[in-house]
Write a protein that binds this DNA or RNA. Sequence first.
DNA 1: CAAGAAGTCAAATGGCGATTTGAAATCGGC
DNA 2: GCCGATTTCAAATCGCCATTTGACTTCTTG
Lengths: 218, 218
Amino acid sequence: MSSVADETRARLLKVAGPLFAQHGFRDTGVKTICDAADCNVAAVNYHFHSKQDFYGAVLAEAHQNAFAMRPMPRASVGTPAAALTAWLWWWMESMLHPGRPEWLQTLMAREMAFPTPALDQMVKRSIRPIYNELTAIVRRLLPRGSRLTVVRDCVHSVIGQVLVYKHAAPVLHRLSAMPTYQRGGLARLVANVVTFSLAGIAAIAAQKPSSRSKKIRR
Amino acid sequence: MSSVADETRARLLKVAGPLFAQHGFRDTGVKTICDAADCNVAAVNYHFHSKQDFYGAVLAEAHQNAFAMRPMPRASVGTPAAALTAWLWWWMESMLHPGRPEWLQTLMAREMAFPTPALDQMVKRSIRPIYNELTAIVRRLLPRGSRLTVVRDCVHSVIGQVLVYKHAAPVLHRLSAMPTYQRGGLARLVANVVTFSLAGIAAIAAQKPSSRSKKIRR
DNA sequence: CAAGAAGTCAAATGGCGATTTGAAATCGGC
DNA sequence: GCCGATTTCAAATCGCCATTTGACTTCTTG
């Protein structure tokens, strides 16, 4: 409980996020982190028990900083369509905005596709609330008695449209297809995803008047 | 050029795919692979130059087996909507079908999110043709003079809806939201993605009569 | 069937990276 | 300004893993 003591502790936490995000947990050496934080290799094992525990602390810290100063909008705002629009603006800006703590979203994306023991905690703390909120919004856009599987399909379709820019980023770069998130770029992208999603959900809703139905092609 | 000689070579190639898919390149030891293939650790360095080259050979092999016996439908079939439907059936069955060489898609997904030096080759050989084909289909669903960025947004929205089931699988499992790909499950999922995508693209098309336009909300 | 080529093997090598250690330095309260 | 506790440091340790080595076995071919 000293003042100067855990100054390096804080320095480690601050410096590690971007590094883990860029190279992943396995490919980021303790040596590298400590060099960046300008301290000895033993520091991470002294202040945190192990590299794995340290990684967990970084994730927790990042979660605090990100979701505290940028709270998720609740579903109760206006019409269902307005709610989805507002929510998508919030989430896509959180996930894709190039500014500030950009690496947190990258870390989450990384953890999603390549789980470490820290994923369970992250799902409970960060991901499940987001998922539940979107599910609630989508449910209001669908007919009353829609099957759970259909609701989920729509939720996943919305999520996928956003996550693709994180999970397939290396490929999109190689295809020269990575959008620029500058001023206009991100806004245009969000608007398109909103339009696309609202129309998509509406089509699913129209297809199932309420009860069960056979597959509809045409 | 012997007969019994490269029998173990073939055995290594056959056995490594699932292992790499399950644990990733870094976390799959040569020891593990050779145990599974029932041969000595030196084999992989004898038949292929290094572990990295061996991995490249596994990817190439997998590509052959997968896309040779399941060719991609060309865009020229019928109406644009029919083309997208046919193409999505092909791609989603290739990506999500639980049967046979399931691990190839998992390997591709892995490579997308966590590139190794083998990604460049994979993009050129496997991914770019797929991407170009879908782009051609989507372009026919949009107005003549649509901007390239808009076409791309739609392509990515379609891709994302499918990839999410690969890239976010660990999370979806923890959310109890992973769909079952049994008999009816996959068909229903594909049908929903088709409906969702066609409506989404139509909405984007309707929104931009052809020239430029300001952001359209609500 | 001989002899060389090709393949297999157990054991060694070498490097990398997380963790530990024990001594030195710094801090906090008195 | 001193003493015990906390924090830092350079060096050692330890385990893991890809790769090499050199002897041994198995093929091929004339």
